[in-house]
Amino acid sequence: MGHTPVELLRKRLDELDIPDPPTSDGPSDRRLQHLVVVMGSFTDARMEAECIGPAVVSPDVADAWVGGSELLQSIASDEPYLVDGPVQLGMQEWIATGRHGPAVPTDVHSRAFYTSTATRRGPSMWRTYLNLHYEPELFPLPWRTWRLEADAGAAVFEVASARDWVEFVERYPARDAQLVKPDWASASHDYAGVHLTLGAIVAIQGFAFLTAYGPTEPQYWDVESTRWLSWRFGSPVLVETTTAGPSGL
């Protein structure tokens, strides 16, 4: 059944804010797992199938709806930097899969380099994503988890809302066909990285926003992440090597 863009956003929030929310007890945070499952289901294929017409919403409307999310409020009570930022420079993780080499690539100018923040219980949300989407073709083993500590002075653009995302794209626009997306190279002159919080990801995933340059390209970040535009880290520390795929949660 088709939905208008706002209806689809409300459906997303209904799926996140279930009446009996997962608890945060136990070795891993069930709330984050639940969020990863729900957001991971909002692929471009699902957006295309379920949205009537272009998936364009107002950033202010998106932010207003997401601001009322009980799940995000619950997560923010324990891990506010995941939901609202700012990025924790000393707690970044990068996970290499079997597609990567044995070392951490430092040429972040030539390839996209994303980290996710270690959580209170340990693993980052990206590790939770890998556990939930383990698929040998996509993410072959082994997985090597590297801890990275960014320079204290590294400037990071914080995207904590749809409005922030629109501001970022309008400040660093790159036109691509009918859409506008970030010009990462241009942004790298001013910032070492761009941090997308859960509040922003829930608001923007799969949606386009109107700007002076046209509609923004829909994004699919899935988990709290920082895209680094320049290498501003000390020596990476290998904290874990995983050779067996997850069998469950």
């Binding site: 729900v38 989407h133 698929e135 073709e137 949660l249």
Partner: peptide, 21 residues
């Protein structure tokens, strides 16, 4: 491609995926 089984205990949602080159 056939995925393995993924279990979601005490949940309202479950998901799994399969991928190929």
């Amino acid at each position: 491609k056939m995925s393995g089984t993924r279990y979601f205990p005490g949940s309202r949602f479950g998901a799994n995926n399969a991928a190929v080159r």
